[in-house]
């Protein structure tokens, strides 16, 4: 197996508050190989965006990494100083956020923004940067790129802006892309165009990608593997087909069943009763046990770590095999 581009080991993120410390992420571990797309799904507050923010070194204070390691090509990046991290962002890790309007600077033309990024990170001259900016706009499918390169962000539609953001994230040819809900603000017909574009570029350039979204459909179409998060931990991780078709964790199963199907009408959608606990009130044992239909005594006492569940890894005592059997 080749060395992973990104490796996250036992990541723990805490928020100190007046009422005590909230643990936003706990024991989060995963790796992404070159050219691989890892989907990260979960409901609001599960910690999926937080994981992305921790990797690119943009946690909102007072949030801080309290434990674990983040390694980019084997090198630790979680303990770097701001200035060192700034050089890695853009050059080695590209970021795409949900809202293209807040990502782009409204006062500069898109060409200038692309050129600035490349000049900061690549050893090229301004004329070359300008030429490449036009090339990138063509590559992400902006018509009449040579003219549009001198336009300002407000002159583009939402879908076109997100294409510019993708060009911006990719133009310094990073090894890893962290994309946080890149298609959520877009209409479904535009969404399909953007997903196809991201997938094609990641494959062509061999870029590893972490795709954070709440939309299982997007994950199913784009990702190679998927991590399902619940209350700040990974509940299940595995190949996308296995997680979607034959989930091993009851939470994943509930989540998949509650998605309204497009190909038929059901009288009653499967629902998970209750809601995800707040960070200040995460139950003891497995965080999902109060909502779990398969709960048994151990779930309320011990917190399960990810364990081998056949096709995937799931943090669930149902899959526990005592060492005597193993």
């Amino acid at each position: 197996m080749p060395n992973p581009i990104l490796e996250v080991r036992d990541l723990r993120v805490e928020f100190p508050t007046r009422r005590g410390t909230l643990v936003a992420l706990d024991s989060v571990s995963f790796a992404i190989q070159p050219g691989e797309v890892l989907g990260v799904v979960g409901e609001s507050g599960a910690g999926k965006s937080m994981t992305g923010a921790a990797i690119i070194g943009l946690l909102e204070p007072p949030g801080r990494i309290a434990g674990g390691q983040i390694l980019l090509e084997g090198r630790r990046i979680d303990n770097l100083r701001y200035e060192q991290m700034r050089r890695i962002r853009g050059r080695e890790i590209g970021a795409i956020f949900q809202d293209p309007l807040t990502t782009l600077n409204p006062l500069y033309t898109v060409g200038d923004q692309l050129a600035e990024t490349m000049l900061t990170h690549l050893p090229i001259r301004p004329a070359e940067a300008k030429r490449r900016a036009i090339e990138w706009l063509e590559l992400v499918g902006i018509p009449a790129a040579a003219q549009r390169v001198d336009s300002y962000p407000h002159e583009f539609s939402g879908g076109m802006r997100q294409r510019v953001v993708i060009a911006l994230a990719l133009c310094a040819e990073p090894k890893l892309i962290v994309a946080d809900e890149p298609t959520t603000a877009l209409d479904v017909s535009i969404q399909a165009q953007i997903i196809a574009l991201l997938k094609r570029l990641a494959r062509e350039k061999g870029t590893a990608m972490m795709l954070v979204t709440h939309d299982m459909g997007v994950i199913a179409e784009t990702a190679d593997r998927v991590a399902v998060m619940y209350a700040g931990r990974i509940a299940e991780i595995g190949p996308v087909r296995d997680v979607v078709k034959a989930p091993r964790h009851p939470y994943t199963a509930g989540l998949m069943a509650s998605i309204p199907p497009l190909d038929r009408r059901v009288e009653r959608l499967a629902q998970i009763d209750g809601a995800m606990p707040r960070l200040s009130a995460i139950p003891q044992g497995c965080a999902y046990h109060p909502r779990c239909p398969k709960v048994f005594s151990r779930c309320a006492v011990d917190r399960p770590e990810l364990m081998d569940a056949g096709t995937t890894d799931a943090a669930c005592w149902l899959h526990y095999k005592s060492p005597a059997h193993a």
Partner: peptide, 20 residues
């Protein structure tokens, strides 16, 4: 309908509607 991401993962390539 064609544009909706497919959970079934039949592997068919979708033809996204062009333009806006």
């Amino acid at each position: 309908m064609e544009a909706i991401p497919d959970l079934e993962m039949t592997g068919r390539t979708r033809i996204p509607v062009g333009g806006e």
